[in-house]
Amino acid sequence: MPEATDSMMAAHASTDLARLWDTVVGGDLAFVMARANAISVGSANAALATHGLKVRSYSVLALAAAGTRPTQKELSEFLKLDPSQIVSLIDQLETRELVRREPNPSDRRVNVVVVTEAGRALYEQAREATQVAERSAFAALSADDLTTLASLVRTIANSTD
Protein backbone atom coordinates (compact mmCIF):
# COMPACT_ATOMS: atom_id res chain seq x y z
CA MET A 1 0.00 0.00 0.00
CA PRO A 2 1.36 3.50 -0.78
CA GLU A 3 2.49 5.95 1.86
CA ALA A 4 -0.21 7.80 3.81
CA THR A 5 -2.22 10.19 1.66
CA ASP A 6 -2.12 13.98 1.92
CA SER A 7 -5.66 13.99 3.32
CA MET A 8 -4.58 11.59 6.06
CA MET A 9 -1.69 13.86 6.89
CA ALA A 10 -3.92 16.93 6.91
CA ALA A 11 -6.37 15.24 9.24
CA HIS A 12 -3.56 14.50 11.66
CA ALA A 13 -1.40 17.60 11.10
CA SER A 14 -2.46 19.16 14.37
CA THR A 15 -1.15 16.21 16.40
CA ASP A 16 2.33 15.20 17.39
CA LEU A 17 1.70 11.93 15.58
CA ALA A 18 1.49 13.48 12.13
CA ARG A 19 5.06 12.49 11.29
CA LEU A 20 4.26 8.85 12.04
CA TRP A 21 1.48 8.81 9.46
CA ASP A 22 4.11 9.57 6.83
CA THR A 23 5.77 6.17 7.35
CA VAL A 24 5.30 2.72 5.88
CA VAL A 25 3.26 1.77 8.95
CA GLY A 26 0.95 4.78 8.43
CA GLY A 27 0.17 3.45 4.97
CA ASP A 28 -0.10 -0.22 5.95
CA LEU A 29 -3.70 -1.38 5.51
CA ALA A 30 -3.54 -3.96 8.32
CA PHE A 31 -2.25 -1.30 10.75
CA VAL A 32 -4.79 1.31 9.66
CA MET A 33 -7.65 -1.19 9.97
CA ALA A 34 -6.42 -2.31 13.40
CA ARG A 35 -6.18 1.32 14.54
CA ALA A 36 -9.66 2.12 13.22
CA ASN A 37 -10.96 -1.02 14.94
CA ALA A 38 -9.35 0.03 18.23
CA ILE A 39 -11.00 3.44 17.97
CA SER A 40 -14.38 1.89 17.11
CA VAL A 41 -14.22 -0.77 19.84
CA GLY A 42 -13.04 1.75 22.43
CA SER A 43 -15.94 4.04 21.60
CA ALA A 44 -18.45 1.19 21.72
CA ASN A 45 -17.05 -0.18 24.99
CA ALA A 46 -17.34 3.25 26.58
CA ALA A 47 -20.98 3.48 25.47
CA LEU A 48 -21.74 -0.05 26.63
CA ALA A 49 -20.10 0.37 30.05
CA THR A 50 -23.21 1.99 31.51
CA HIS A 51 -25.08 -1.20 30.58
CA GLY A 52 -22.47 -3.51 32.11
CA LEU A 53 -21.44 -4.79 28.68
CA LYS A 54 -18.46 -4.73 26.36
CA VAL A 55 -18.37 -5.31 22.62
CA ARG A 56 -17.89 -9.07 22.99
CA SER A 57 -20.70 -9.62 25.49
CA TYR A 58 -22.92 -7.22 23.54
CA SER A 59 -22.27 -9.24 20.37
CA VAL A 60 -23.42 -12.45 22.04
CA LEU A 61 -26.47 -10.71 23.48
CA ALA A 62 -27.32 -9.12 20.12
CA LEU A 63 -27.06 -12.43 18.27
CA ALA A 64 -29.30 -14.08 20.85
CA ALA A 65 -31.75 -11.16 20.65
CA ALA A 66 -31.88 -11.56 16.86
CA GLY A 67 -33.68 -14.84 17.38
CA THR A 68 -31.04 -16.82 15.50
CA ARG A 69 -30.67 -19.34 18.35
CA PRO A 70 -26.90 -19.68 17.78
CA THR A 71 -24.95 -22.58 19.18
CA GLN A 72 -21.82 -21.90 21.21
CA LYS A 73 -19.76 -23.28 18.32
CA GLU A 74 -21.45 -20.92 15.85
CA LEU A 75 -20.82 -17.97 18.16
CA SER A 76 -17.17 -18.96 18.46
CA GLU A 77 -16.73 -19.24 14.70
CA PHE A 78 -18.74 -16.13 13.82
CA LEU A 79 -17.13 -13.86 16.44
CA LYS A 80 -13.67 -15.37 15.86
CA LEU A 81 -13.28 -16.10 19.57
CA ASP A 82 -11.92 -19.16 21.32
CA PRO A 83 -14.72 -21.48 22.51
CA SER A 84 -13.64 -20.95 26.13
CA GLN A 85 -14.15 -17.20 25.68
CA ILE A 86 -17.67 -17.82 24.37
CA VAL A 87 -18.48 -20.06 27.34
CA SER A 88 -17.28 -17.32 29.70
CA LEU A 89 -19.30 -14.63 27.93
CA ILE A 90 -22.46 -16.74 27.97
CA ASP A 91 -21.87 -17.60 31.64
CA GLN A 92 -21.63 -13.89 32.48
CA LEU A 93 -24.80 -13.07 30.55
CA GLU A 94 -26.59 -16.06 32.03
CA THR A 95 -25.62 -15.02 35.57
CA ARG A 96 -27.30 -11.67 34.86
CA GLU A 97 -30.33 -13.55 33.49
CA LEU A 98 -29.94 -11.93 30.09
CA VAL A 99 -29.63 -15.18 28.11
CA ARG A 100 -30.13 -18.85 28.76
CA ARG A 101 -28.90 -22.05 27.19
CA GLU A 102 -31.51 -24.40 25.79
CA PRO A 103 -31.12 -27.78 24.11
CA ASN A 104 -31.11 -27.58 20.34
CA PRO A 105 -34.26 -29.41 19.16
CA SER A 106 -32.38 -30.87 16.19
CA ASP A 107 -29.42 -32.07 18.31
CA ARG A 108 -30.07 -32.27 22.03
CA ARG A 109 -26.32 -32.68 22.71
CA VAL A 110 -25.86 -29.07 21.62
CA ASN A 111 -27.12 -25.97 23.38
CA VAL A 112 -28.43 -22.85 21.70
CA VAL A 113 -28.36 -19.39 23.27
CA VAL A 114 -31.63 -17.51 23.61
CA VAL A 115 -32.36 -14.08 24.98
CA THR A 116 -34.54 -13.53 28.03
CA GLU A 117 -37.04 -10.72 28.42
CA ALA A 118 -34.54 -8.80 30.54
CA GLY A 119 -31.87 -9.47 27.93
CA ARG A 120 -34.03 -8.12 25.13
CA ALA A 121 -34.75 -4.94 27.08
CA LEU A 122 -31.05 -4.42 27.84
CA TYR A 123 -30.11 -5.19 24.24
CA GLU A 124 -32.47 -2.48 22.95
CA GLN A 125 -30.94 0.11 25.30
CA ALA A 126 -27.40 -1.01 24.47
CA ARG A 127 -28.14 -0.96 20.73
CA GLU A 128 -29.11 2.70 20.96
CA ALA A 129 -25.88 3.44 22.82
CA THR A 130 -23.77 1.62 20.22
CA GLN A 131 -25.44 3.49 17.38
CA VAL A 132 -24.59 6.84 19.01
CA ALA A 133 -21.01 5.67 19.58
CA GLU A 134 -20.74 4.47 15.99
CA ARG A 135 -21.93 7.80 14.61
CA SER A 136 -19.33 9.55 16.76
CA ALA A 137 -16.47 7.19 15.90
CA PHE A 138 -17.15 7.45 12.17
CA ALA A 139 -18.18 11.12 12.07
CA ALA A 140 -15.34 11.92 9.65
CA LEU A 141 -17.09 9.87 6.95
CA SER A 142 -19.99 10.92 4.79
CA ALA A 143 -23.07 8.70 4.75
CA ASP A 144 -22.04 7.34 1.34
CA ASP A 145 -18.48 6.66 2.50
CA LEU A 146 -19.77 4.90 5.61
CA THR A 147 -22.05 2.71 3.51
CA THR A 148 -19.13 1.85 1.21
CA LEU A 149 -16.80 1.16 4.14
CA ALA A 150 -19.36 -1.10 5.83
CA SER A 151 -19.85 -3.03 2.59
CA LEU A 152 -16.12 -3.46 1.99
CA VAL A 153 -15.32 -4.50 5.55
CA ARG A 154 -18.25 -6.92 5.59
CA THR A 155 -16.93 -8.48 2.36
CA ILE A 156 -13.54 -9.03 4.00
CA ALA A 157 -15.06 -10.33 7.23
CA ASN A 158 -17.37 -12.71 5.35
CA SER A 159 -14.75 -14.01 2.91
CA THR A 160 -13.41 -16.65 5.29
CA ASP A 161 -16.71 -18.33 6.22
Rank of each mutant, 00 (worst) to 15 (best):
P2W: 14
P2M: 13
A4S: 13
A4E: 08
A4V: 03
A4Y: 03
T5Q: 09
D6V: 15
S7V: 14
S7L: 15
M8E: 12
M8I: 12
M9S: 06
A10S: 11
A11I: 13
H12M: 15
H12A: 13
A13C: 07
A13W: 04
S14G: 09
S14C: 09
T15S: 13
T15G: 06
D16A: 15
D16E: 13
D16H: 11
A18W: 10
R19S: 12
R19F: 14
L20A: 12
L20C: 08
W21M: 11
W21R: 07
W21V: 04
D22T: 10
V24I: 15
G26Y: 06
G27L: 07
G27E: 05
D28Q: 07
L29I: 14
F31L: 11
V32P: 00
M33R: 15
A34E: 11
R35W: 14
R35E: 13
A36W: 05
A38I: 08
I39N: 11
S40Y: 13
V41E: 02
A44N: 03
A46H: 07
A47R: 02
A47W: 01
A47G: 04
L48E: 00
L48Q: 01
L48A: 01
A49I: 07
T50M: 11
T50F: 08
H51K: 06
H51T: 08
G52H: 05
K54W: 05
R56S: 07
Y58P: 01
S59V: 05
S59H: 03
V60C: 02
A64K: 05
A65D: 05
A66R: 12
G67Q: 06
T68E: 11
R69S: 10
R69A: 12
R69H: 13
P70K: 00
T71R: 09
T71F: 09
T71N: 00
Q72K: 13
Q72I: 08
K73C: 06
E74N: 09
E74C: 03
E74A: 15
S76Y: 04
E77R: 15
F78A: 05
L79P: 01
L79D: 00
L81M: 12
L81H: 07
L81E: 06
D82T: 09
P83W: 04
P83E: 04
Q85L: 09
V87D: 00
S88V: 07
S88W: 10
I90T: 04
I90D: 01
D91H: 08
D91G: 03
Q92C: 04
L93K: 03
L93S: 03
L93E: 00
R96M: 06
V99I: 05
R100M: 10
R100P: 01
E102K: 09
P103R: 11
P103E: 08
N104G: 01
N104V: 04
N104I: 02
P105R: 12
R108H: 09
R109K: 12
V112N: 00
V112E: 02
V114N: 03
V114T: 11
V115Q: 02
A118Y: 10
A118Q: 15
A118G: 10
A118R: 15
G119L: 04
G119D: 01
G119E: 02
R120I: 02
A121H: 08
L122R: 05
Y123I: 03
Y123F: 14
Q125S: 13
A126E: 02
R127S: 03
E128R: 13
